[in-house]
């Protein structure tokens, strides 16, 4: 293992401490837990609070998206591990401005169990909450079983849209509805070229031969749908886009946002090579790309590879996507 760290057991804590130290205008640690990051102006009275939570190792997901027009608070676990229900409850309290709290997170067993429990804990304190689970990875389950899909980079769009809705003063039902619509309209798929190493484990989570790639691999190294020899970028882009389009068709005249995301080690250059192909294909379909995102938005530490997300927009989602927002990793407007 070759990583810049002090102690594998302190990896998550030291990351969060550094993040808050670097960007105090966006992030502060909760006085109640070093694993809960809160927006400095949260809670905003009368506004719905948006919280998320999940394991470390995916920056800017999850904590990075705490910010104005985005999330209010976030609970963080160890690398690839769920935070505790108690930490999630602390995040929910920090986000509660009296108008309810939306729990918006990826569809993973441990996170679900703990977030449900956190919801029950704060319910005893009269904090109302709702849930939207992002399940956008088309490779992880069939269309018929889409509720079982994992949540990957599509959650970035859900954070943005929910955050904008809360900022506009929508009530909890309406914030929940638009967040669910964003989650439903986002479809993603990844491709991995090389693995990452969980610090405490000290060895790669899987192995891929030098000439191999795996389409559909999850952001924790969950098995994908197909392993093959590494193909040219355009072929890879086509395979990924085809998987997304066969799940949710994009028609002429549709407006979509596209995220070409690095899983960690893949450079921007290669992301733009992929983007050019995806844009060309969507253009031929007659679809209009709105606010494209290319970069490191949802990672798996040093994994090499990329993911593609397509978000199908309607006027309501587009307005919320374009609304001003700011965190250390993303600024809109």
């Amino acid at each position: 293992m070759k990583k810049l760290l002090n102690d594998p057991a302190a990896y998550a804590d030291e990351t969060l401490a550094g993040l808050c130290c670097a960007h105090p205008e966006f992030y502060r640690l909760s006085p109640e837990s070093p694993r809960v990051v809160v927006r400095p102006d949260s809670p905003v009275q009368g506004r719905v609070g948006i919280v998320t939570g999940g394991g470390s190792g995916h920056l800017p997901v999850f904590t990075g998206y705490v910010g104005r027009g985005l999330l209010n608070a976030c609970a963080i676990g160890d690398v690839f591990a769920s935070p505790s229900a108690d930490e999630m409850a602390i995040a929910m309290r920090a986000a509660n401005g009296g108008a309810g709290v939306l729990r918006l997170y990826g569809n993973y067993g441990g996170d679900i169990m703990n977030f449900e429990m956190a919801g029950e804990m704060v319910e005893l304190e009269d904090i109302t909450s709702s849930t939207v689970k992002v399940a956008d990875d088309v490779a992880s389950a069939s269309t018929a079983e889409r509720a079982k899909r994992r949540g990957v980079a599509g959650m970035v769009y859900a954070f943005k849209i929910a955050g904008a809705a809360a900022e506009k003063g929508f009530d909890l039902d309406k914030v929940t509805r638009v967040a669910q619509k964003a989650a439903d309209n986002a479809r993603s798929i990844g491709v991995a070229l090389s693995p990452c190493i969980v610090p405490k484990a000290g060895k790669p989570t899987f192995t891929l031969q030098e000439n191999e790639m795996e389409i559909g691999m999850g952001i924790h190294g969950e098995p994908g749908v197909r392993r093959s020899e590494l193909k040219p970028a355009n072929v890879v882009a086509d395979e990924m886009l085809d998987a997304i389009l066969s799940d949710g068709a994009v028609k002429g005249g549709d407006r979509v946002s596209v995220l070409v995301n690095s899983l960690g080690a893949t450079p921007l250059e290669e992301l733009y090579i992929l983007f050019a192909r995806v844009a060309d294909r969507l253009d031929k379909l007659g679809a209009q790309i709105v606010m494209p995102l290319v970069g490191r938005y949802a990672t798996s530490m040093e994994m090499t590879g990329a993911s593609l997300t397509v978000l199908i927009l309607d006027p309501e989602l587009e307005e919320l996507l374009r609304a001003p927002a700011e965190c250390a990793f993303w600024k809109v407007g």
Binding site: G77, A81, S82, P83, S84, A85, D86, E87, A89, G110, N114, M117, M121
Partner: peptide
């Protein structure tokens, strides 16, 4: 809350 904090 205490149990969930020390053991997930």
């Amino acid at each position: 809350a205490a149990v969930s904090k020390v053991s997930s």
